[in-house]
């Protein structure tokens, strides 16, 4: 699973991307966050305001992320 971090998430994680090679089973959004915060505890501060995207689409309620996915942690956007 390839994980991308943007904006404040990149700053708090200390990297823009990483691979989670040990993940063999699908993860719910809550399980994804547990793993992300375990790896980068500072992400807890923005967990409540970020959205998660799976393969370039926002994660739908109840949808899981899976091994092989590209998963992005997206803080509130500020384009325009």
């Amino acid at each position: 699973m390839r994980i991308l971090y943007f904006s404040q998430a990149e700053n708090l994680a200390g990297c823009s991307e990483e691979s989670w090679n040990g993940i063999a089973a699908p993860l719910s959004e809550a399980e994804f966050w547990e793993e992300a915060v375990r790896r980068h505890p500072a992400l807890e501060a923005i967990r409540g305001i970020c959205r998660v995207a799976r393969n370039e689409q926002f994660l739908s309620p109840g949808e899981h992320v899976r091994p092989g996915d590209e998963v992005a942690v997206l803080p509130p956007v500020s384009g325009g």
């Binding site: 943007f6 904006s7 995207a53 992005a72 803080p75 956007v77 500020s78 384009g79 325009g80």
Partner: peptide
């Protein structure tokens, strides 16, 4: 569209 851009398009002022 401009309202949605500022809510739902992953672009950031960094």
């Amino acid at each position: 569209f401009m309202d949605r851009l500022k809510q739902d398009v992953p672009i950031w002022k960094v």
